[in-house]
Design a protein around this nucleic acid. Structure first.
Lengths: 219, 219
DNA sequence: TGTTACATACCAACCGGTTTGTATGTCCAA
DNA sequence: TTGGACATACAAACCGGTTGGTATGTAACA
């Protein structure tokens, strides 16, 4: 039978279609938020119709949750170059991670924003499932950073002792807040400046590598 | 022709009515966001009708802008105890400010959230007027903190030189991010831990008051 | 002081458009 | 021929905002 590959219109590829919906949702919701983005808009952006939408997702919120999960996987794969870099020490890997984050601010025509922070801010108080989904993603990021900090604390000389998980949450919060403030200020440079201070903060936890010039107090 | 003035005697107090609308908007939008809150809901919460709403505000966005401005004034008045405390040194005033912020996490039954961060996250990318309004509030907070840091830098001995405005933005971002992450994690204690680290960070800028125990590196 | 004139404050009903979600149909591959 | 993948059409509720009206405060003037 002739395959008749020239099948008019649309390829049938449910996984890809589902991903098209997720991509569209991410693109639109990062800009307009959850409530500010309609299902019709998402369908138009994905080049699909509403029937298809509700075939793949049982609700708009379900799609947003899938989008947050996808965002988390995507992020982890981007951070992996730093997180799983076995040929570098823990502090160096933290530096690499901060460089990756800084790189997010330098993409032409693309804002440095986060789907998790966006959905969390808007929906955490009213949509428990979404709060849980965002909490999971933030926890995962924090776990990875805490792991590196723990390693660093074992291998290097901490100036004062610290709780790796606490510091990791500190960095996560700074990162989320930087993107938020950068948005209101319209300045990605502000985000980079914060990341530089974060690097100084992390380095300052350890006496070892970048020895700070100690200023003797005269008085 | 008795007019029958059995008028339901609603108080006629335009300023108070306007404020009732602002209060209602703040209460609802802090929880549900801007797009997730309808004008009808706001009117119901304020005990008014839509006609009255649009007499005082020309649009829902105009009310949200007024609410952000009110939130800023409210915040400034709460921080004033620290910011304008002439009987304390700059570093002590920064400590007092952090204590005030920490106090926001301890209010019974009330989440530690920020109208400016909320509106900024949701609307900055699509509503230029709102982005500007939020940017102004964040800038004002930063200015006050930078002022204290500048004073502290003059009076105390900075370990290494720093840019007060940069550090102020760092603290502002951390604060906003802490509220965001605290929301997703459902933990106000997380916010307090971040504020403690922020205090350590600020103290660490100066060699003077809380001398850090220096660990000599053996290797 | 009493009356008239007008602006402000507020209300109830309504409007066109948009919302999420459904019901149903069609096409195609297995 | 059966079932998944998608499209079309539709509905009930809800949206932000408008309209036309009434009640009330204020001020000029008789």
């Amino acid at each position: 039978m002739s395959k008749k590959a020239a099948t008019r219109s649309r390829e049938r590829d449910p996984a890809a279609t589902r991903q098209r919906l997720i991509d569209a949702a991410v693109r639109l919701m990062l800009k307009q938020g959850f409530a500010g983005t309609s299902v019709d808009q998402i369908c138009a952006e994905a080049g699909l119709t509403k029937g298809s939408f509700f075939h793949h997702f049982e609700s708009k919120e379900a799609l947003a949750e899938a989008a947050v999960a996808w965002w988390g996987r995507m992020g982890s794969s981007l951070y992996a170059a730093a997180w799983e870099n076995t040929s570098a020490g823990p502090l160096e890997r933290l530096h690499q991670m901060l460089d990756i984050m800084s790189g997010f601010t330098r993409r032409e025509g693309e804002d440095c924003v986060c789907m998790v922070g966006m959905m969390s801010q808007e929906l955490a108080a009213t949509h428990p499932a979404m709060q849980a989904a965002c909490g999971r993603e933030l926890q995962h990021w924090t776990d990875q950073v805490a792991r590196l900090l723990t390693e660093a604390r074992e291998q290097l000389q901490p100036v004062t002792d610290f709780d790796p998980e606490e510091v990791a949450w500190f960095l996560n919060s700074l990162w989320q807040g930087s993107m938020l403030v950068g948005k209101a200020s319209g300045s990605q440079a502000l985000i980079r400046a914060n990341l530089q201070l974060a690097r100084d903060f992390v380095d300052g936890l350890f006496a070892n590598p970048p020895v700070l010039p100690v200023v003797h107090q005269p008085s």
